[in-house]
């Protein structure tokens, strides 16, 4: 009797998984990943060695960064509006905080075609979990290269540092965490502001079953943010905007830029001696 119940349970789980597996979900990666976060990190560092870390020079005392997340291309209406608004506002760069595509090669091509319409705009993309579905990391790497890097915005009497980190697999991994710690140790004091971009939201802002980081890793990150005075941590993943505070660090979760999202929005980061932000609805 007990065996029969177990069999029914297992068959039900398989059936539910099969029925629920739409073409946007890659159930294989629930159990076996295509590559580890350490592999992506090593490939990213190799790419960084070839391309170097970007420094953006500005003569203005104030500049803007436009930040978006979770466009999940397919469709590209909001993506194009976001890019056009960034161009119109003369933003210094756009940062794309993961889940830019569904992970499929066709969608990567659509995404790349659309953002290439704005060739003068500097773009800083990072992978999210969806971007690595269907072996999507290979497409990301081919099109954009690194997903772990920093860039600097340098003015006449200031320099600000922006870290882009890969949490597409729900963890930074030991190698990326070590790299990030070393970067903060050696560089933080040289810069006015320090901002971190990554895909996974760190705090559980609401009741939904999306993955946040392991508690052990979160505590290490919170410790680093306090110790090195990280000003803002900007994430996506949760699809609903949220702002919370822990010590001197502001934690921002972005709304999804997804076309179907009725609350689709992006963030305008206005940087001068302070960092101000505004959510702009689409």
């Amino acid at each position: 009797m007990a065996n029969r119940k177990i069999k029914i349970l297992i068959i039900s789980i398989i059936l539910i998984c099969s029925i629920s597996s739409c073409n946007k979900a890659d159930l294989r990666s629930m159990f076996i990943s295509y590559e580890s976060v350490n592999t992506r990190f090593e490939q990213s560092l190799n790419k960084n060695m070839q391309t170097g870390y970007q420094t953006i020079e500005t003569t203005n005392d104030e500049y803007q960064l436009f930040v978006m997340s979770d466009s999940h291309v397919g469709s590209t209406k909001n993506l194009n509006t976001f890019m056009q608004n960034a161009v119109n506002a003369d933003a210094t760069a756009v940062v794309m905080v993961g889940d830019l595509t569904t992970g499929k090669e066709d969608d990567y091509d659509v995404f790349a075609e659309n953002i290439e319409k704005y060739p003068t705009m500097l773009k800083f993309p990072i992978v999210g979990n969806h971007d690595i579905f269907f072996n999507g990391w290979n497409c990301f790497y081919k099109l954009f290269g690194s997903t772990v890097y920093y860039f600097v915005v340098k003015g006449t009497d200031f320099s600000d540092i922006y870290f882009c980190l890969d949490t597409g697999s729900g963890t930074l991994g030991d190698k990326q965490l070590e790299w990030f710690t070393n970067q903060l140790e050696t560089k933080r004091q040289l810069y006015r502001h320090c901002v971190v971009f990554t895909h996974n939201n760190l705090f559980r802002a609401r009741h939904i079953p999306t993955t946040e980081p392991m508690t052990e890793e979160l505590l290490v990150l919170l410790d680093l943010f306090v110790k090195y005075n990280v000003n803002i941590v900007i994430t996506g993943h949760d699809h609903k905007k949220d702002v919370s505070f822990f010590g001197n660090t502001t934690h921002i979760i972005l709304s999804a830029l997804l076309d179907k999202n009725v609350d689709a929005a992006y963030l305008n980061l206005i940087v001068n001696d302070n960092i101000n932000y505004e959510f702009l609805n689409l």
């Binding site: 979900a25 890659d26 159930l27 990666s29 629930m30 159990f31 076996i32 990943s33 979990n129 690595i132 579905f133 597409g168 697999s169 729900g170 963890t171 996974n200 079953p209 999306t210 993955t211 980081p213 392991m214 890793e217």
Partner: peptide, 8 residues
């Protein structure tokens, strides 16, 4: 980590 994100 990440199994519920389908990116274990």
């Amino acid at each position: 980590s990440g199994s519920f994100n389908l990116s274990i």
